[in-house]
Amino acid sequence: MATLTTAEPTRRDFLYIATGAVAAVGAAAAAWPLIDQMNPTTAVLALASIEIDLSPIVPGQAVTHVFRGHPLFIRRRTPAEIAAADAVPVSELIDPLARNANLPDDAPATAANRGIKPEWLIVSGVCTHLGCTPTVSTPQAPEGAFGGWLCHCHGSQYDVAGRVRKGPAPQNLDVPVYSFLSPTRIKVG
């Protein structure tokens, strides 16, 4: 049976594998700068946080600011809207997590966990489906059935706490890192 056994690896086999391995590592190292150049530059990453004056916003009003190139929704909620958001049990939600960058990742999506002060809802204006800007719903011009926002691109609906109530969006609108500098001024980012 000696004829069926494979020959001992030779020095040449070793050299083939070693050369191939060095070439593969070299090719990967050369490819990385070509790939990584597409990531955001340091200047983009260093985008400063912004401060927003809330004083012109009246109860029931929603305004849009720009934060990191995306729309940012600021909504001064009426007592009725706060009560409506509080009344929704978390078990009814599509996404049970708060998605609030100011809280732990596993915080539940209660109305209280979606902001700092109940009167102020501050959420990213980027639909979590494919990134369109949803249209705000007001009592005068309702958009969707949940009083918050309706995304016209693919029909996702959000409630007055920015929580997704009808798909295809998988997640609640993100709550960015923010804090109150004074009762009428916030810093986002």
């Binding site: 849009t64 720009v66 190139g69 995306h70 729309p71 204006g125 979590t128 489906h129 494919l130 369109c132 800007t133 949803p134 249209t135 995304c151 016209h152 691109c153 693919h154 029909g155 798909g167 295809p168 969006a169 998988p170």
Partner: peptide, 27 residues
Amino acid sequence: PVVTPSDIVPEWYLLPFYAMLRSIPQK
């Protein structure tokens, strides 16, 4: 960047695939 047109549709040649994407309620 802060206003999405109310009806966004792709060019006609991609509409069948767009309809498939939209017909599924899960991302």
